[in-house]
């Protein structure tokens, strides 16, 4: 978060002051990033590469280096998968708890489709 008090008015004794402030949640990364270079086969195997740089800037308090641990994947409507992820430092879970990363990946990637044909 970006949080700052930019000024205070009505500051004389007997007054109810007004605080002017700015507050931007997850400044710099408002939305969890979409995976890139993703592919999923008909058999449910494949890889999804997440833009972890974007996640790092979105979640405060995660010391580097860290890994993203995908904890659960669920399939929704065609082409939409939901990844539940957390962070770990290589051995144990750290920092932010699981967050939901809904994203769209190709349900039938071209290379796999071609092979099946």
């Amino acid at each position: 978060m970006a949080f700052a008090i930019t000024g205070v008015t009505n500051t004389t004794p007997g007054s109810a002051p007004t605080v002017n402030f700015t507050l931007n949640d997850r400044a710099g990364a408002q939305v969890p990033p979409l995976p890139t270079n993703s592919s999923v086969s008909r058999l449910g195997t494949g890889t999804v590469t997440m833009n972890v740089t974007g996640i790092a800037s979105a979640i405060q308090g995660i010391p580097s280096p860290f890994r993203v641990r995908v904890r659960a994947v669920s399939a929704g409507p065609r082409g939409v998968f939901t990844f539940v992820y957390s962070f770990d430092n290589g051995t144990t879970e750290i920092g932010a708890p699981p967050a939901v990363l809904p994203t769209t990946v190709p349900a039938v990637p071209t290379p796999i489709t071609s092979a099946l044909r």
């Binding site: 008090i5 205070v8 007997g14 007054s15 002051p17 605080v19 002017n20 402030f21």
Partner: peptide, 29 residues
């Protein structure tokens, strides 16, 4: 992302206030 928060009438700066006062804030997600 910009806001203004005005204190209620029950939380005014006291009439006997003097010198420098401070306002601090807490926000959580």
């Amino acid at each position: 992302g910009s806001y203004s928060l005005t204190f209620p009438p029950t939380a005014i700066i006291p009439l006997t206030a003097a010198g420098t006062w401070s306002i601090a804030m807490q926000a959580s997600r």
